[in-house]
Design a binder for these strands. Structure first.
Length: 426
RNA sequence: GGAGAGAUGGCUGAGUGGUCGAAAGCGCUCCCCUGCUAAGGGAGUAAGGGCUAAUACCCCUUCGAGGGUUCGAAUCCCUCUCUCUCCGCCA
């Protein structure tokens, strides 16, 4: 959520910022509503104040043994007016809240202008795409021909956008996750965390998936509905909900491996083949809670933590700054890590690292006590995939393929593979 | 699933209709005293919101959440949630 005070005071600036995303904010309508809110709130609070003082007088009068009847009459009279005012105020406030919850975060000034993916700005590259002296294949051909990967098997059970992995490939997938968790906990100072995969709506409102993006989520039909998490960012970031941290406790770093569930509504026809876009995938997620002044620096740091994984796996990648039209709802700025996929001869997203500034913190009341003033302030939250396990697996398969169709195990993963050096046909 | 107990400020814990946002203690901050330390004395110490140039006054809201009764609710009534104890079941 954007600071409502800022929204009132600098409405046109906010509208200008949001328009960079292609988001149209009706400032006039908002301000009209806001004007009504102000009048109603001032009136309501004035009436409440009068009621309170008169009620107190009634108490005093009664205690003295006097006759409180005239005072009771007086207070009863504006009881009706108060009720009326309160009801109107509540309605207007609800309307404002609804608007505010639908507004994306303000973009950082450094975010490059652009409409979509194609306008993202490349920041740096690491590694050289390998030159193969044989005809390369994509992960689907490689995995299926080894008998280790089957979309057909999955479709019998669950339909499209699911995969079944077997044997050493399933193990390699698990190895990737173990390796990532181990790296982030031991080298980067994150605390390993186990979190619920089913969450209630308020958690998703906190991180920004709701109310706007409900169609992207899977929801249970139980009496209290649960949503399947689309990313561990949701449970991890909500750890800060309704909390005031001591300044000395920050920064806090959490890492979790979870499955992620996405309905992929609206992406029909996109990446329909293979494991790139599934309803269910595994991801290792990084989340940090920091004081406001630190978040810009920490975004660089966190991005570096995700990069380390790709470097240790020796997978070529590039870092791009998302353009104004491509930055996610809750983020002020984001970097994407794009890994080289020989099968597609292109770089594909494998991680997004975002600085959400105080946007999520405001929604979930996540605060830090300022060490010098002693006052609670909103913290800044950051998150990034470190990295998506399914896509990392694709990258390993395609980048480590051999002329004979086998897959070499990256050095970094060998300790997790029980002495196997290659994925072979079964 | 059954039976019971509870939910109050950073913590412990009083408070069953009228200046209660809330006693007391602990903790914390500041000051005083004591040549250090210990002990002692005093003051302060919730969050959110509104108004505002203001992080100054003032005002509103909040005692698990949501409704209700009342001129007035931490206190009475209803619903829900969560926690704890015992029993049952169970990976």
């Amino acid at each position: 959520m954007i600071d409502p005070k800022l929204l009132r005071r600098a409405t046109s600036d906010v509208a200008a910022n949001l328009s960079r995303r292609g988001f149209e904010f009706d400032a006039t309508a908002y301000l009209a509503l806001e004007e009504r809110r102000k009048t109603l709130q001032v009136d309501t609070e004035k009436l409440q104040s009068e009621r309170n003082t008169t009620s107190k007088q009634i108490g005093v009068e009664t205690a003295k043994g006097g006759d409180p009847a005239p005072l009771i009459d007086a207070v009863t009279k504006y009881g009706e007016r108060l009720k009326n005012c309160q009801a109107q105020l509540q309605a207007v406030q609800a309307e404002l809240k609804e608007i505010e919850l639908d507004l994306p975060n303000l973009l950082d000034d450094s975010v490059p202008e652009g409409n979509d993916e194609s306008d993202n700005a490349e920041i740096r590259r690491w590694g050289e795409p390998a030159q193969f002296d044989f005809e390369t294949h994509d992960h689907i051909e490689l995995g299926e021909s080894l008998g280790l990967l089957s979309f057909e098997a999955a479709s019998k059970i669950s339909g499209s956008r699911f995969a079944v992995m077997r044997g050493a490939l399933a193990r390699l997938h698990r190895a990737l996750i173990q390796f990532m968790l181990d790296t982030h906990t031991s080298a980067h100072g994150y605390q390993e965390t186990y979190v619920p995969y089913l969450v209630q709506d308020h958690a998703l409102v906190g991180t920004g998936q709701l109310p706007k993006f409900e169609e992207d989520l899977f929801k249970t039909t139980t009496q209290t509905p649960y949503y399947l998490i689309p990313t561990a960012e949701v449970p991890l970031t909500n750890l800060a909900r309704d909390t005031i941290f001591d300044a000395s406790e920050l920064p806090l770093r959490f890492v979790a491996h979870t499955p992620c569930f996405r309905s992929e509504a609206g992406s029909h026809g996109k990446d329909t083949r293979g494991m790139i876009r599934q309803h269910q995938f595994e991801k290792v997620e990084l989340v940090q809670f920091v004081v406001a002044s630190e978040s810009a620096r920490v975004l660089e740091e966190l991005t570096g933590h995700a990069e380390t994984i790709l470097q240790l796996l020796e997978l070529p990648y590039r870092v791009v700054a998302l353009c104004s039209g491509d930055v996610g709802f809750a983020a002020a700025m984001s970097y994407d890590l794009e890994v080289w996929l020989p099968g597609q001869q292109t770089y594909r997203e494998i991680s997004t690292c975002s600085n959400c500034t105080d946007f999520q913190a405001r929604r979930m009341k996540a605060r830090v006590r300022n060490a010098t003033t002693g006052k609670p302030e909103l913290m800044h939250t950051l998150n990034g995939s470190g990295v998506a396990a399914g896509r990392a697996l694709i990258a390993v398969i395609e980048n480590y393929q051999q002329a004979d169709g086998r897959i070499r195990i990256p050095d970094a993963l060998q300790p997790y593979m029980g002495g196997i050096a290659f994925l072979e046909k079964i």
